[in-house]
Amino acid sequence: MASGVMIFAEQREGKFRKIAFELLNIGKQLKDQVGGPLSAVVVGKGVEGLAQDLGKFGAEKVYLVDGDLFANYSSEGYAAAVAAAAKKADPAILLTGASTMGKDLSPRVCAKLATGLSSDCTKLEVQAGKLIATRPVYSGKCYVKTQVPNTTPQMAAVRPNAYAAAAAGGGSAELVKVDPGIGPDSLRAKVKEVVKSAAGKVDLTEANVIVSGGRGIKAAENFKILNELADVIGATVGASRAAVDSGYATQDMQVGQTGKVVNPNLYIACGISGAIQHLAGMRTSKVIVAVNKDSDAPIFQKADYGIVDDLFKVVPIMTEEFKKLLAE
């Protein structure tokens, strides 16, 4: 009978993404309630050493799919790999991240395993032995709770930053090699190249602190003041759609329904009115600060802290104040 929890430990270029450790943390909590082992599946090329490391973070078994075919991510290759590992491990619960990779991968795995998947979950719990997933729907205007009652594994894709990352301890994991039995012809879509943008920056979807600018920023060069603030507090800079569509910011910076869903501890919105489509992308932020010169801007209804004033006056002072505070 299916038992335990398996997590997909996402890696790119031989490094685990933060979400892998977040899933190990929530996976541990869930397996304490459903019983059975906590396992991880790692897919890549030359990642055996990396896979072994997960023992320190609580994985009891690590299923490894390693080979040339898996050097880059591919929907077909990785789905075959994860499905093969899941068949071998037979977990009651299978978690992936709701990252770009996880969102592409999880439904394909779900179809291969003929089970059910809850996407982009912000909360997971166990009731009567079943996984209950909670997630925002309808642009974040309400939540829905779902379960996968009759099939296993019960699958869920978990929103990055919804859970803290597992801390390193002293454990070690048993390594199990898995061969999904596919050849190069099975990959009809192949990554030819990975183009990197601004190196070293934490992606918005993984960022703990975000400073965003909207139409109120008025020009691309004015993002400079947000960049300066971001540098001081270790933030990633985001933007509203209006800022992107006006050419002040690039598309990869857009937060919201047609941009990225972010989930930081702190979100500072500058010159953003707070349209429902923007809120849809940042509503689950733990603390929201709004800077807007219009006291009627809807963003103030969602903000924990607000300043009604000109952002061009506020932001440089804020940068200085944070600098002082962090120097203490």
Partner: peptide, 13 residues
Amino acid sequence: RRIEGGEEVVEVK
């Protein structure tokens, strides 16, 4: 396709 921190260029049949 946009991914975290960049883009993947994918050839598909």
